[in-house]
Design a protein around this nucleic acid. Sequence first.
RNA 1: GCGGGGGUUGCCGAGUUGGGACAAAGGCGCAGGACUUAAGAUCCUGUCCCAUAGGGGUUCGUGGGUUCAAAUCCCACCCCCCGCACCA
Length: 966
Amino acid sequence: MQKLNFHEIERKWQKTWEESQVYNAEVDFTKEKFFVTFPFPYMSGSVHIGTAYTLTRLDVISRFKRHMGYNVLFPFAWHWTGVTIAGVSDRIKRRDQQTIKILRDIDGVPEEIIYKFEDPFFMARYFTENNREAIKKLGIGIDWRREFHTTSDDQCYSKYVEWQYFKLKEGGYIKRGKHPVVWCPRCKSVTGDHDRLSGEGVFPIIFNLVKYKLKDSDAFLVAATLRPETIFGITNVWLNPNADYVEARVNGEKWIVSKSCVEKLKDQLRDVEVISSFNGSLLLGKYVLTPLTGKEVPILPASFVDPDLATGVVYSVPAHAPYDYMALVDLKKNKEVLKKFNLDSSIVDGLQPISLIKTERFGINPSEVIVKELGIQNQNDPNLERATSEVYREEFLHGVLLENTGEFKGLLVKDAKVKVAEVLKEKGLADEMLELPTPVICRCGTRTYVKILPDQYLLDYSNKEWKEKAKRCLSKMRIFPEEARINFEWFIDWYDDWAFVRTSGLGTKLPWDDKYLIETLSDSTIYMAYYIISKFVNQGYLKSSNLTLEFFDYVILGKGNPKDVARRSNIEESLLESIRKEFDYWYPVDLRNSGKDLIANHLTFYIFHHVAIFPEDKWPKGIAVNGFMKLGGQPMHKSKGIFVSIKDAIKKYGADVVRLTCLISADGLDDPDWNDEVVNSAFQNLNNIYESFLMLSGAKVSENDTELDLWLSSKVREHIKTAITSLNEVAIRKAAVEIFFNFRNTLKRYVRRRQELTLTPTLKKALNAWVVMMAPFTPHFAEELWRILGNNSLVVKERWPREEDFIENKLANLKEDYLDSLLSDIQNVKKIMKEKPSKIKIFVASEQKREIARFVALKFAEGKRDNEIIKEVMVAFKDRTSSISYKDLPKSVLRLVEKIRSMGFDTFMNALDKITEDEFLISSSNFLKKDLELEEVKIIKEDSKEAAPYEKAKLSEPLRPSFILE
RNA sequence: GCGGGGGUUGCCGAGUUGGGACAAAGGCGCAGGACUUAAGAUCCUGUCCCAUAGGGGUUCGUGGGUUCAAAUCCCACCCCCCGCACCA
């Protein structure tokens, strides 16, 4: 058999497409446009098969739309903005071996080139060129004339970003304010998730600070807590006797906090002045006054207190906090500790847990219960972490406050929490600070904390009106899959002000304050409009100096007088007009497709910025999202070596195999998986199709259709319909399965059913349709098949087959279904026979049985119950049943009703009336013989003489013949 | 914690909106047969359990419920995955 050389045909067709410029899109008012975009990939490395997954999905849609007669635009660009590229450059400068290894082994960069990556722009350019090749080789139908990249390296694009930010400023979408970040005091910079040695995924939360007045002093011991409601159960305050504390003036009050808290308070914009420093043990044995309840409680030592967490002061609620409980138990058990600090042991004698919350699971003394359950020995037991979270969770969800909580009694913990904190704050007895709940360590090894940056430039995403506008846009948009919509809604609501400038990395400068660069997500929100302009830039018609604010105002917003704008921007008026015309034709984006991760950021920004700047008719129309490609079940991870680049995949398997693997592997938000098995099966699949295609198309041509072609036509029609419906819903896997499996199975069955295969007109038409349907998925392969069918045109430009090209024939379908169900009955019996049969006698039900069936069906349709139907049949056929014994009637009626119910009345009646069973079976007997490997097939009517000797004949039912295998 | 998605037969994965033809599509894997010198590929058949005649039994995370009828509807619970702001 002839084998396909995928690489060869791919090279051939890619060249042909390029020469005939099929993917270059120009304005054409006779056609409806369809504009698709893909979020430009970031150029710090090679594009991988995850990118291929999302990209090929979009390519399928864009090609499908072209087949459907749309004028399709699919442009592409590159993302260079941000700190990652610069970060890699820095690591190369430092000769970081890990980075070099990844670039060399994973990205396949030659060693001598790696050192040139000290220049971040060189690196970005290198990857851009390499990745462009990879994407071209994948056969994505892109209009490459519109390519560009971000950052100041592309001055024209920078101009566009500048215009965007002037617009946002004008519109009042930018403000200045405070912004909290995770901060490394040593690096003096923000510590992002990826800059952490440990503590990934940890983010700041608000701690309540409760102020306990120190008895006989004007200073407050400031304790941090996440459970302000437990203040009613306080028995004492804990300090770490081995840690340093300070007394400091904080915004006019005297606070006592751990020494390491001072910097945090300063960095959270408080005015802090340290008065004195001392060891924690100094205050032990003194008393503080509790807010709200006015009790006096002692200050005691506890080693579990972390001076680096929040204020380093903890108030003790032993009943509900396992840590506090164990620390108290420890003290009572081990009075040596008290002695060491010159404390009288009686100080702890009176301290008993005070319960203030009740839950079903733990009752009123959760600490005691859980400590016992987990067998915890002392306050340094690591299990206390778990104990704490279990109690916390249970009480938060189901806890109710007891009598001793005054005005808060009876409240649920989750409500009381908020109320108590409010009341305390109102009375000046509490404050709050931001803190990381668990330690976050910077790459440099330093423990980080939360700093509030003042005077940040912020995008005002908290603005209600802006949110409303964004939601209005969303409500008019198509979202694929629809389940993702709720995510968008949530994120639009959730977004708070966004700090959009940085001081490091690559990017475009903030036009009115050039200390700052616009950060990576914020410079890439509305760039799809720039694709219209970049074509003119690339063709040499526009230079950065032409791209004035008025120019963009006119082209994108239609503002201003073209004559004046043209003069001031120093370009031809006609050129300006045609750019505007093109923009107006192509915009908005009809479909943007990306991985689901971008819902939370880029895609939501995309909506926000469009509604801020563009008129409503230019708002985005549709977004599709999909899952992430996994490798052998694992997420891709360069440093672990779990990575396959597009280039390598194509080299190994060929583009169409890579494409088909991607396209058939998942749909919706599911994550597809890339492994040898699935890739090989795609490879095999295409080869099989190729072989059978050669066989089919090479069959002897016949002028006339056979009866089976009626069925074929019906089936093809279904395949076309399902494929179209699926593609319209961006259910690409579903469409691919329909085309590459179901359609193929139809053809397989067709071949099996034909006695002698010939290329009938319908078969030929079906093959043509099939190839066009394959083209969006495996375009090179399809071009090849298209030629085999004797066509000279390019299949990628062909019209998609229409349903009406293939006539539906219900009767043909019914007949084939009838035959299939008979076949499966026979197979079933064959299976349980000891010996292989060689003959079959098939008995077709008598006329009278058909009459009864019709009678039953009509009664069923009238809505009669089973019993009524039986009665009526009994009456109607009382004296004239011959082929069926009178006493068997009820059972037989019930079976019929069951069948009618399952087939549906219409289908049943149709089959009953239109299929002449004996004739059809006789005409199919050669097929039965061959398919069942029998030597003799006999069709016998139940009411014929020949049937008389056979008991089995009586078991025949309409549409369900009985048979004897022997 | 908050928000989202999901648990289907050896595996992947349809089916769940609108309950009925569901022992549950399709693919993969596995078994048998055909073809072949042979292997691979391909084609046919089978693949929950029982059954020497088309039958019966038990299944769709767990436990209840509604219904003539539930993978599909309702309630409760368990488990898994993803995101949560300066990485893009």
